[in-house]
């Protein structure tokens, strides 16, 4: 199975979410024999765990797009006061 989960492959959260959706759809569609179903299931659990981890690690990132004194657009980190 060249399809095995490698976290490095997922740079973005959405990749994980989309892969998870595909795996669950595969499982729900039936069609798999028991061995395949179990390995797909294990795979899906790993991806779900990765997604949860990503969410837990996430911190609020709010930036400002402003022009500096030379008129060049720059991104500035902000500290947002959240209640």
């Amino acid at each position: 199975m060249g399809d095995l989960f490698e976290p490095e492959r997922f740079k973005k959260f959405r990749d994980g979410m989309e892969y998870l959706e595909r795996l669950i759809e595969k499982l729900e569609s039936g069609g798999l024999d028991l061995d395949e179903a179990i390995s797909t299931f294990e795979e899906a659990c790993k991806v779900a765990k990765w997604c949860y981890k990503k969410l837990d690690e996430a911190e609020k990132k709010i930036k400002l797009l402003i022009k500096d004194e030379n008129g060049i657009l720059t991104l500035k980190e902000t500290e947002t006061k959240e209640n």
């Binding site: 996430a58 911190e59 709010i62 930036k63 797009l65 991104l75």
Partner: peptide, 16 residues
């Protein structure tokens, strides 16, 4: 900011 970061904690918001 409130709604978006509650629904998707992983996102970045850029304000112009």
């Amino acid at each position: 900011i409130n709604v978006a970061t509650r629904r998707a904690p992983h996102i970045t918001i850029i304000l112009r």
